[in-house]
Simulated assay, not measured.
Amino acid sequence: MERARGAFPFAIDLLSRGIAIIQLPCPEFLVLGGDRPPMSYEEYAALPDFRQQCQQMLQPIIQQIQAYQAEGYHYLGVIGINESPNCSISGQRGVLMEEFFEKCQKAQLNTDYLEVPTWYSEDSEGVFKEKLHRFLEKC
């Protein structure tokens, strides 16, 4: 779901605080390409080997988080996109996030999260900004 012409405005807030961002791979784009039709969670979950492809995409991310932690960096958690078939965390968790949280639990990584609401846009940050600041209180 495209909600910003580029990075979400809150990403600038994160970077200005010295917080690094590791972007998760987009399985929708990597598996089906940019010219894909809109699909639901159920359709992605039913694709042959889609979960396995998500797992393979996530493995280097998990290793990267572990390497950063081994160097003394603090991992805050993950930011999801509400109602995305792959990146939603609350409600029906997306396919990619199901796999991400499972890998985090196995690796004993923090599973704190922040979720970008469906109404969020470049022009309307609303109460999300407050949630973001609460999420960042850990750093």
Results as ranks from 00 to 15, higher is better:
F128K: 10
D112Q: 15
S124Y: 15
A45R: 06
P48Y: 12
L47V: 04
H133V: 11
Y113R: 12
I81C: 05
A107W: 06
L14Y: 08
Q63C: 09
P25M: 15
A45V: 02
Q66M: 10
Y75Q: 11
P38D: 01
Y41E: 01
G33W: 02
G77I: 04
K131V: 11
R51M: 09
R5G: 13
K103G: 03
K103N: 06
K129T: 09
E71C: 10
P85D: 10
F128I: 09
W119H: 15
P60Y: 10
L14K: 14
M1Y: 09
F135W: 05
E125T: 07
Q23T: 09
R93I: 00
Q23M: 07
I19T: 06
N110C: 12
A4P: 10
P117Y: 10
E71K: 08
I12A: 14
Q108Y: 11
R17D: 06
E43L: 09
E83D: 09
V95N: 00
I62W: 02
N82A: 14
D49E: 14
L30W: 01
I62M: 03
P9I: 08
G72I: 08
A67R: 11
L136S: 04
F135P: 05
Y113V: 03
V127D: 13
I19D: 11
S84Q: 14
V127N: 15
A20V: 05
Q55F: 03
Q66N: 04
Q92L: 01
P27N: 02
P85H: 08
A7H: 06
K106Q: 06
K103P: 02
M97S: 02
L14S: 08
A46L: 12
A70D: 01
E102L: 12
D13I: 07
G6S: 15
E137L: 02
Q105H: 10
A70Y: 02
V127P: 06
L24R: 02
L58K: 04
E71W: 11
I22P: 04
T111A: 10
S40I: 08
K138N: 14
S88P: 03
F8C: 10
N86T: 02
P25C: 13
Q105C: 12
I81G: 03
Q66G: 00
Q59P: 03
W119K: 10
V95H: 00
E122K: 12
A45Q: 09
A67K: 07
D49K: 08
D123E: 14
Q66S: 13
E83H: 15
F100V: 01
S121R: 13
E125I: 12
G80I: 04
V95G: 00
F128R: 07
E83A: 13
R51A: 06
F101Q: 04
S90D: 08
A107M: 13
E42H: 14
Q64H: 07
N86P: 01
L32E: 00
I21F: 10
D13A: 11
P9A: 12
D123T: 09
E137K: 14
Y41N: 01
F29Q: 03
Y73G: 08
L136K: 14
S124E: 15
V95S: 00
F50R: 00
I79Y: 04
V31F: 03
E125D: 13
S40V: 04
M1V: 06
L136T: 08
S84D: 08
N86L: 00
A20E: 13
V116Q: 06
A4V: 07
